[in-house]
Simulated assay, not measured.
Amino acid sequence: YSSFSYITQLPLSKLKIDQSFIRNMLTEPKLCNVTETMIAMAGPLSLSVIAEGVESHEHIQRLKDWGCDEVQGYHIAKPMPLESLNQWLISTTLN
């Protein structure tokens, strides 16, 4: 929800795409087009891209195909207490 002018004025290194674009991008062509365009725009600006709200493998594959660098969302993991994080990291790394 930021103005495009901030992209050139602030010392940014990452562009985070809000879940409101990601969640329904597979069923709404406009959201799909906007998301793909944001990822394409980030490259020439030397910004890495993080997409939030990823809820399926298809989301991940589409974002990867477009050049998205990182994803976060329930498909990766649901929120968890700190005490559970270490065990989750171990089990995820080994699989």
Results as ranks from 00 to 15, higher is better:
Glu70His: 11
Met41Ser: 07
Lys78His: 11
Leu12Phe: 14
Pro11Asp: 14
Glu55Phe: 06
Tyr6Ala: 04
Leu47Ser: 06
Ile50Asp: 02
Ala51Ile: 04
Ser2Glu: 11
Pro79Thr: 14
Glu52Arg: 09
Ala42Leu: 09
Val49Glu: 03
Ile76Lys: 04
Met80Val: 08
Gln72Trp: 08
His75Glu: 08
Arg62Trp: 07
Gly53Trp: 04
Leu15Met: 14
Ser2Val: 08
Gln19Tyr: 02
Ala40Val: 05
Met25Ile: 08
Asn24Met: 09
Gln72Glu: 14
Ser3Cys: 08
Asn24Glu: 14
Cys32Met: 10
Ala51His: 03
Leu31Arg: 07
His75Val: 05
Ser84Thr: 09
Lys30Pro: 00
Cys68Thr: 09
Ile76Cys: 10
Arg23Ile: 11
Leu15Ser: 04
Leu31Glu: 06
Gln72Ala: 13
Trp88Gly: 00
Val49Gly: 03
Glu36Gly: 15
Ile60Cys: 10
Gln19Cys: 03
Thr35Trp: 02
Gln19Val: 02
Met41Tyr: 05
Gln87Ser: 13
Gln61Arg: 10
Ser3Lys: 14
Ile7Gln: 02
Ile17Glu: 07
Asn95Ile: 08
His57Asn: 06
Ser20Lys: 08
Val34Thr: 11
Glu52Pro: 05
Leu82Ala: 15
Ile90Gln: 08
Arg62Glu: 05
Pro79Ser: 10
Ser56Cys: 06
Ser48Asp: 14
Ala40Pro: 01
Lys30Ser: 05
Lys14Ala: 13
Val34Phe: 01
Ser46Trp: 00
Glu55Ser: 08
Val71Thr: 13
Lys30Val: 05
Tyr6His: 09
Lys14Asn: 10
Thr35Ile: 06
Ile17Gly: 05
Glu83Pro: 01
Thr93Pro: 00
Asn24Gly: 07
Met41Asn: 06
Thr92Ile: 00
Ser5Val: 10
Asp65Ala: 15
Asn33Pro: 00
Thr27Glu: 13
Glu36Arg: 15
Ser91Ile: 04
Lys14Glu: 15
Ser91Cys: 05
Val34Cys: 01
Cys68Val: 09
Leu12Gly: 06
Glu70Pro: 01
Glu58Met: 03
Thr27Asn: 04
Ala40Lys: 15
Met80Phe: 01
Thr92Trp: 00
Ser84Ala: 15
Phe4Arg: 11
Thr8Pro: 00
Leu94Asn: 11
Ser56Glu: 02
Ala42Cys: 08
Lys14Met: 11
Tyr6Ile: 06
Glu70Tyr: 15
Met80Arg: 07
Pro29His: 07
Gln87Trp: 03
Thr35Lys: 04
Lys64Met: 02
Ala77Cys: 13
Ser48Gly: 02
Tyr6Lys: 12
Gln61Lys: 14
Glu70Phe: 14
Pro81Asn: 14
Asn95Met: 05
Cys68His: 05
His59Tyr: 02
Gly73Glu: 06
Asn86Glu: 15
Ser13His: 13
Ser2His: 11
Leu10Tyr: 12
His75Trp: 15
Thr8Val: 03
Thr37Ala: 13
Asp69Ala: 08
Gln19Arg: 15
